[in-house]
Design a binder for these strands. Structure first.
Lengths: 333, 333
DNA sequence: CTGAAAGCGCTAACAG
DNA sequence: CTGTTAGCGCTTTCAG
């Protein structure tokens, strides 16, 4: 293990002061062109790499941005993280990624880890269980700006990028109604998850607007995994008065339903149309393909990163970004 | 923006020396129990957070580990990154994640970024285009150990966790033969990608072992996306002498084939059986479900992290970890 | 344009 | 057990 080259080493080699080397390296204006060139060449030759600790210690900030999510694995998060990482790279930032696994205590510790490392800012999507925001407040108090996306705290007004889920719920419903469906079931997943509740409100609103009365048993709750879709499908197939369409707040469940329908030889979308949410890539691979509402992931990532950059630069965000989901029409509806 | 509390602030408040505070905070043995308790309490009260820059500057290392992958988004990578992140968290590490987008220059810059931040170690899966390893050598030269997984450099002998792809290719083939299939096509994807070539060798070997002669047109090459599967399926369906099984080096392509078969009302697996690789989650959601070979992702993550911890601790890895893929039997074969 | 001096926050070595 | 001293590598004054 070789000792790292420092600016002092370069200075010694060139018999100048290390301050000058520092200046030359950073493109400071007050440096003789020749000196500068010489320094740059020598740095290259001596394999100099700046020490982020030392500069961080001085500036008390880094070229790192923190990303906090509940889980890296779902398509939505891996996709947005990937986009943000690419954007960050272009601006000379490296990303530090934390996942809470939907655990409040872990999320808290992650925030502290980012604080210790004095990240320049944080982009976060919070865990379902997070009610208290003190760990984020701590970040802000230490001058680390936080921008939220997707799962934003209810109390946060401006520093966030969110989806108009109400509108998305309407969009899905209107689309099915326009296809002549009248007997639409809405699978709302877990109660008291904001995002889901908003989609449900959109559904109700669309029915209302179209003068369709909502049947009591047309709203279902339950888990949000594939296997839950199988349960739902079986329940629905057992009914005497079968619905002619199902809207599902997550694709995983919709795919479970789709699968069960295929096995039961129910024709989709003729007998039952299905619309999901979130544009899971599997939806494009199944047959029939799943019609779904997609988050504009690149835009979400772009806006979040943009907001964060602004906040890092000291600007204030005065209006949140509210983006719409897009209907992706495939075969299932 | 509040100034951060430092150990000196605590020292001043308690009228003791900051060295003592430092010792107390780190659980150094030579500290009076009472003093220690007092310091800990005061630190808590004054909202002290250690400054990673300062300690990093001293020790020239951090509690950060770097993860380098070509792309965060594919299921395999998001899954392994997620596992590694969780393991790292338990050991007090934070992770820094870099993606190269299969670009050698970006990979190089990412390595430098990790170097600047003096990460404690790196876990890497290299880009297809990476032939020169100087950026990784630079890391090693600066005392940053690198452990490779999945896409490991050919020259790397010990510090890696890899998959026995040859064996996996055999496994898939043997399975189909055991099901009575004789006329098996192998879709080998891009030529000169190691992983794929090894799977192909396994296929050839299995045929050989079973006394089946390999037909010229039973090995196909092409892209590795879903749409390439559609092309392949169409090509095969057009043949007078249709194969009775297809092995596909990636699930994405296998799923494209499966989809086309469903559309063409070809019975799977009766008329054509299909086996994929990599256990894409979509394979579990389609009907019929895709039989596939799965990487033991948790084990890969665990071994990689384990190797890295050993290397950080100064131990040498004397034998690479070679793991086997597991056959996941669903309906398609 | 260049140099000198000081200090960011922390820890290691040494002396009490 | 505690305090002193020094220094990690860099940047920011301030003085030439």
């Amino acid at each position: 293990m070789k000792k790292n080259t420092t600016i002092k080493d370069i200075a010694k080699a060139l018999d100048i002061h290390h301050t000058t080397v520092s200046r030359a390296l950073r493109g400071h204006p007050y440096v003789n062109e020749d000196t500068k060139k010489l320094v740059l060449e020598t740095a290259e030759k001596m394999k100099y790499f700046p020490n982020a600790f030392a500069s961080g210690l001085r500036s008390n900030t880094s070229k790192i941005i923190g990303i906090m999510v509940p889980d890296i694995r779902p398509h939505f998060f891996s996709q947005t993280i990937s986009c943000i990482t690419n954007l960050a790279f272009k601006r000379g930032y490296t990303v530090m990624i934390c996942q809470s696994n939907e655990d409040y205590e872990v999320e808290k510790q992650n925030a502290l880890a980012l604080l210790k490392n004095r990240v320049a800012g944080v982009i976060a999507s919070i865990s379902y269980k997070t009610k208290k925001l003190d760990h984020f407040e701590t970040l802000e108090k230490h001058g680390i700006p936080v921008v939220y996306f997707d799962r934003v705290p209810q109390s946060e007004i401006n520093n966030c990028v969110k989806i108009d889920n109400f509108n998305a719920g309407m969009l899905a419903t209107d689309f099915l109604i326009s296809k002549g469906k009248k007997n639409i079931v809405f699978y709302a997943g877990l109660p008291n998850v904001n995002v889901f509740a908003q989609r449900l409100s959109g559904f109700k609103n669309a029915l209302d607007k179209n003068g369709i009365t909502l049947e009591e048993d047309h709203i279902l709750f339950g888990g949000i995994e594939n296997k839950d879709g199988i349960k739902v499908a079986e329940k629905i197939l057992g009914r005497k008065n079968r619905p002619d369409a199902i809207i599902c707040i997550v694709d995983a469940v919709a795919l479970g339903i789709l699968n069960t329908m295929a096995k039961s030889k129910i024709k989709v979308p003729e007998e039952i149309a299905i619309v999901g949410f979130d544009n899971d890539p599997a939806g494009a691979l199944v047959y029939p393909g799943l019609t779904t509402l997609a988050q504009p992931m690149e835009e979400i990532a772009g806006q979040s990163f943009n907001f964060l950059c602004k906040r890092i630069a000291g600007e204030e965000i005065v209006k949140p970004s509210v983006l719409n989901m897009e209907l992706i029409i495939r075969e299932s509806a």
